[in-house]
Nucleic acid binder design. Sequence first.
DNA 1: CCATAACTCCCGGATTTCCGGGATTGCGCG
DNA 2: CGCGCAATCCCGGAAATCCGGGAGTTATGG
Lengths: 259, 259
Amino acid sequence: MRGIEEAIVAIERCETLEALTCALQASIEARGFSHFAFIDTSVAGADQPTLIATVPPAWEREYRSGGFVHVDPMLPVARRTNTPFHWLSVPLPKRLGRKKPGAIKTMEAARDHGFTNGLVIPFHYLDDLGRSYSSVCTFFWKDRVTQFVSMFKQERLALHIILLYWAQKAVEIESKNRNRPSRFLDAEGYPLRFVALTDRERDVLSWAGRGKTVPDTADILKLSEETIDTHMRHAMQKLGANNKTHAVVKAIYLGLIDV
Amino acid sequence: MRGIEEAIVAIERCETLEALTCALQASIEARGFSHFAFIDTSVAGADQPTLIATVPPAWEREYRSGGFVHVDPMLPVARRTNTPFHWLSVPLPKRLGRKKPGAIKTMEAARDHGFTNGLVIPFHYLDDLGRSYSSVCTFFWKDRVTQFVSMFKQERLALHIILLYWAQKAVEIESKNRNRPSRFLDAEGYPLRFVALTDRERDVLSWAGRGKTVPDTADILKLSEETIDTHMRHAMQKLGANNKTHAVVKAIYLGLIDV
DNA sequence: CCATAACTCCCGGATTTCCGGGATTGCGCG
DNA sequence: CGCGCAATCCCGGAAATCCGGGAGTTATGG
């Protein structure tokens, strides 16, 4: 756990992404890692992810051009956890048929570049507009796996806390340059924060989330179909949703309904 | 930075929220704090905020019944920051008219209970659905302010990281209690455990969750509408879903897609 | 007591989904 | 080398949705 304070002070002094990259590289080399790769995974469908890395350019190029950001099995895990984990702890999907899932291709490609395991540190952050960021930083080490695991136990906390401050700084610098989208927008295009749905609107959305159609819900709630339709339209409007599915998804993510 | 490992190991051993509360209390007492208060601030309008605290019951009761969660000046700050801060660093609103702002009332009430300053640790984390939570944990210390500030500098990193693991564990315990996956049934009526979707099926579901129609998705993925339709139908079948909305919701709850 | 908002119900037409059938290609394992 | 499956594409009709209008009733708080 040595050198954390110094590393963080160094990070907070950085003004550019390049300086930041160097600072982190120095920190991780002191801990026996060879490379790192930072990916912003906030927008799951985005084609051009923010990727800051010191991995070999060939690997970075293949990762980008192969569209691995859409199938990398580590990213969904990182989007649902808050603490570090390593590659070997993530079960790969079963091979259904004869075709290789993208997740498996990704891991095989990584192995081809010499990376058999990685320490993944997820990071979640809100900016001053309430926009949600999720990022992941993977640390690579080319040595033996057993050695890796012992290193993981010793250093994951130190790396975790250093990375928290590093990622925050990276996002600050990045957001100064770029206007990034928010995951959920209202009808006017502003980030959705607090939406007040009425009791009935939540009822109707919940039943929709359980797979019920408007006629179904009308029957369940003993109301006319038109009423259900009206509630749904109001809810969609408030949530800035394009359709029923969108409205239900937004309501779930905003914690407005439970299904 | 002493004792972090031990604290985190203790936290990760906890099985209940009560045990978790005790573990955190022990950790902070070792650092000179007397109480803590954890508040989930994700849904600003919620009347019943999640509040886990070891503060005196009288203070907790007054905080709840007084509706302080709606006016507590620390909460908006916590929703926009990612690093620890303390009460004295937050400027209070000026008194405009005759009426005391709720923010001032909150702080006066805290003082009446003996709390003149607090170390506030904001943190943002995701649950197993990928939903974003903003929470705040305030640590109290009854000693002199000068001593408090020096403690703040020494211990904020340690407390920050301990809390992250604490929150992760809290989320895990919560979702285990809800026992979500078994609530979804497959087409034959058996509990859905694991559904294997293909890469394309997941793509199509994800875009549906982002509010895209079949024509939209066809355009995005450069495929024909019929193909999108076919993938969607296969996905609905595998998930035992009644319609698109149902399929997307199930896929989200099963952790199969990211929106 | 009046304004506001929630809740309820109605019409009609355009669009989208749902679902029953298909079909072809390409892949990789046994 | 065939089997099974992912992935692509096609048709047509019934059902549900989306969205533009409305309009009446009930509660509630200032």
